[in-house]
Structures are given as C-alpha cells and as structure tokens.
C-alpha cells in the first residue's frame, strides 16, 4: 500500500484483513472444537505454547482445514506458518490462487 493512500483506502484494506483473520479463527475454533469466541483469540500470540496452546495433533487439523477451505497445502517446511494467526493468514494469502 503506498504512503499516499487515503484514510478510506487504508481502512478498507485493513477491514478486509480483519475479516480474513476472523474467518480463519472461526474455522480453527470449529475444527479444534474450542470453547472460545474468535474475538478473544489473539492474532499475534504464538499458536504453540501460548495463545491457543495447540499441540502437534492440532496443527495437523489446521493443515487439513487450510487444505479443505483454501486449497492451500502446508508442508513440513512451512512450520513458520504456525507462528501466529497473522502468520497463518499471511501464508494462506500468499499461496491461495
């Protein structure tokens, strides 16, 4: 986004990203059967060890979800995609058609 973007343009792009984050959080919560609402899930905390406190079994569930919902494959080398919700959304956006 260029630095001469208007308030409205910036806001629109930010809102679109926010919606994407919420969508992915909702899908994860559904998939993992978590009893939490997506607004409460942090976008920037790690997914393992803090934040959602996922384990490796959960991460495979995310892989399946991302595959089914976005047609994106996650490989063993893509472990950085699990750095946070934002990292996961970045990864999906970079790889979806």
């Amino acid at each position: 986004m260029s630095t001469t973007a208007t308030y409205d343009e910036i806001r629109e792009a930010a809102q679109a990203r926010l919606d994407k984050n919420m969508k992915i959080k909702t899908l994860i919560i559904d998939r993992l059967g978590l009893e939490v609402s997506p607004e409460v899930v942090s976008d920037n905390q790690p997914l393992f060890g803090r934040g959602l406190e996922m384990d490796s079994l959960d991460s495979l569930e995310i892989v399946v979800m991302v595959n089914n919902e976005f047609g994106v494959s996650v490989n063993d080398d893509d472990i950085e995609a699990f750095g946070s919700i934002n990292a996961l959304v970045d990864f999906v956006e970079a790889h979806e058609d």
Binding site: M1, S2, T3, A5, I10, R11, A13, A14, Q15, R17, L18, N21, D43, N86, D90
Partner: peptide, 12 residues
C-alpha cells in the same frame, strides 16, 4: 483503533 491493528497498515 480497529481495524488498523492488522498487519500491513501504513501509519504516519
């Protein structure tokens, strides 16, 4: 403020 705390937002 919302929604500007998502990544990729240019601020001055």
């Amino acid at each position: 403020q919302n929604p500007f705390w998502v990544p990729g937002v240019p601020l001055t």
